[in-house]
């Protein structure tokens, strides 16, 4: 593996991991709200969160580009007030990976939270526990396998992200080039050996992530 390929693998792995770390707290919060509460606009929020799963990734990327670009609602604010540009930087890769993998995390965590018997949380309250203690000591530990499974799936999704990333971050070698983007570019340029080496790494990473997720979910389904 060349140093350039190693850089691409390293960048893809850490930016995927970072995007997963970033989405876990809000993802768990949203999943818990969806699992445990009824509120106005809940269905709308559920639908919006799931949209990146069903929309073409390139379309999601275009929306992000329009929002985060210098003339977009968020991008212009960042540029004018903080002198901070997002698109075509590694941060844009981070945002696109986060947006695309967020629904997977929320859906898995939501199911895991829904499977926790609410009576256990209620009894914990009668024993003097407040909301945060109930969540940390009862809800989360009992939902942990599902939450970890969802987190691993979100990480695996981030590893393979292509469409949204190329729209909002481009494919700048050494800056925003991820495994998927580099494989695509190598094939376009006829660099098959380069593409196959990256493909092998990509398959290994995705296989390991999904394997971990399956093991956790199988363990969860096993009788106590």
């Amino acid at each position: 593996m060349t140093s350039e390929e190693a850089q691409i693998v390293w960048f893809t792995a850490w930016v995927s991991a970072l995007s997963t770390v970033v989405i876990v707290p809000p993802g768990l919060g949203v999943a818990w709200l969806l699992a445990r509460h009824r509120w106005p606009g809940k269905t709308l929020v559920e639908t919006l969160i799931s949209l990146p799963l069903v929309m073409p990734p390139v379309a999601t990327g275009l929306i992000l580009l329009k929002l985060l670009g210098r003339h977009g609602a968020i991008g212009s604010f960042l540029h004018n007030t903080l002198d901070f540009d997002l698109v075509f930087t590694w941060r844009a890769v981070l945002v696109s990976l986060g947006v695309m993998s967020f629904p997977l995390l929320v859906r898995s965590a939501r199911v895991a939270f829904e499977e926790v018997n609410p009576r256990l949380e209620q009894i914990a309250r009668t024993l003097g526990a407040g909301n945060s203690r109930v969540f940390c000591t009862i809800t989360l530990p009992l939902a942990l396998r599902g939450v970890i499974g969802g987190t691993v799936l979100a990480f695996a999704r981030a590893l393979g992200e292509f469409g949204a990333t190329i729209m909002v971050a481009g494919n700048i070698p050494g800056k925003t080039s991820t495994l998927s983007l580099a494989i695509f570019q190598s094939v376009q340029l006829g660099q098959d050996a380069h593409a196959f080496r990256l493909l092998a790494v990509s398959v290994a990473l995705a296989f390991a992530a999904v394997w971990c997720s399956e093991c956790l979910l199988r363990h969860k389904r096993a009788p106590a």
């Binding site: 009576r119 256990l120 309250r125 024993l127 003097g128 526990a129 106590a224």
Partner: peptide, 27 residues
């Protein structure tokens, strides 16, 4: 949590991920 009322529900609701000691010490 501030009512100071002990509740033993019909299904007992022991916390399955904790030991008996963990359950007893919870509150």
């Amino acid at each position: 949590r501030r009512r100071e009322i002990g509740y033993v529900p019909q299904d007992l609701a022991l916390f399955p991920h904790l030991s008996v000691r963990g359950n007893l010490l919870y509150g």
